[in-house]
Nucleic acid binder design. Sequence first.
DNA 1: CTGAATAGGACGAAAAATGTCCGGTTTAAG
DNA 2: CTTAAACCGGACATTTTTCGTCCTATTCAG
Lengths: 159, 159
Amino acid sequence: MHITRAVEYGIIGMLYLAGHDRGKVVMIDEISRKEDIPKSFLGKIFQSLTRAGLVNSNRGAGGGFYMARDSDQINILDIIEAVEGKIALQRCLDAATGCSNSDSCALCLLLHDIQETVKQTLANTTLADLAQKHADMKSHKHPQRPLTESVRLPDIRTE
Amino acid sequence: MHITRAVEYGIIGMLYLAGHDRGKVVMIDEISRKEDIPKSFLGKIFQSLTRAGLVNSNRGAGGGFYMARDSDQINILDIIEAVEGKIALQRCLDAATGCSNSDSCALCLLLHDIQETVKQTLANTTLADLAQKHADMKSHKHPQRPLTESVRLPDIRTE
DNA sequence: CTGAATAGGACGAAAAATGTCCGGTTTAAG
DNA sequence: CTTAAACCGGACATTTTTCGTCCTATTCAG
Ligand code: SF4
Ligand code: SF4
């Protein structure tokens, strides 16, 4: 139960982009140096972000990446799923694998509930939200409020 | 971001125990067969559960495991932490490793919030709750309500 | 043309997850 | 007392996932 480096790097990379003018083209090398992330690894991650349409890229000399939408139109779940595909806390919640017992397994139901709240929270947090908080924190203003609010659980599996 | 097999097996094993009379001594071999879990692996997992005080064990002929407390006095977070230690969604949230930026990283804050709600949900679900739902589901009664309720986020990091 | 930069895929090392095995200890029962 | 059953504990083996690297191709500015 751990967030992967790839996801973390992806979010931090996007935060870096969001901290600059929209449309500003930034090279992998710059993000890599400024955020201390292995360059080739970050390159791979940005390929995924590009394929997912969260950023655009220019190739060739003077090339680099820039945001495809405004940062308040991108949420954190978007980024995570771009980097590592759909979130699945367990086999039964993974469309690809699945589990034959999932219809009669209370644990599966519990994990499903938890997964949905996590996804809701991630989906409700925009990159702009996170970038704003990030900037605040770097300027030594201590945060007073939690970043997220409580999320209503969806009423799942009620036919 | 995945629940490990060890944790899943641990919970299912405890569910099995909870489905029998309190004090009933059950062998690893029985749980292993009935729940289709590799025997030696399950043995290891139950060692952890025993060390954590969730179950007691009798050694020697006629030995086995039995619940150390009533199932409504054990929650799912207890089981998870018994099997794999404290939950940590990231380095910065892991007391052992940590991250030097955690004071000025909005992502850390977001992950912290999420982790807390997950832990709250797990802590609010007792083994008895899960066992009840499990039994219901196995007898073909379709569940009407989600297992968990929404959890208030704690107001973290407000000095 | 040349050098800079991403795209894509193959590859490799390290870590974690998932088990297995075996010798040791405890205990019930004959 | 002996034996067989069962857990204990640690070492070990296998597989999968994570965390990258590297190389070639492609694209583009100057
Ligand atoms: S939690 Fe239940 S349904 Fe999900 S994978 Fe485990 S056994 Fe299957
Ligand atoms: S999220 Fe921020 S604080 Fe947490 S490990 Fe990553 S960089 Fe460090």
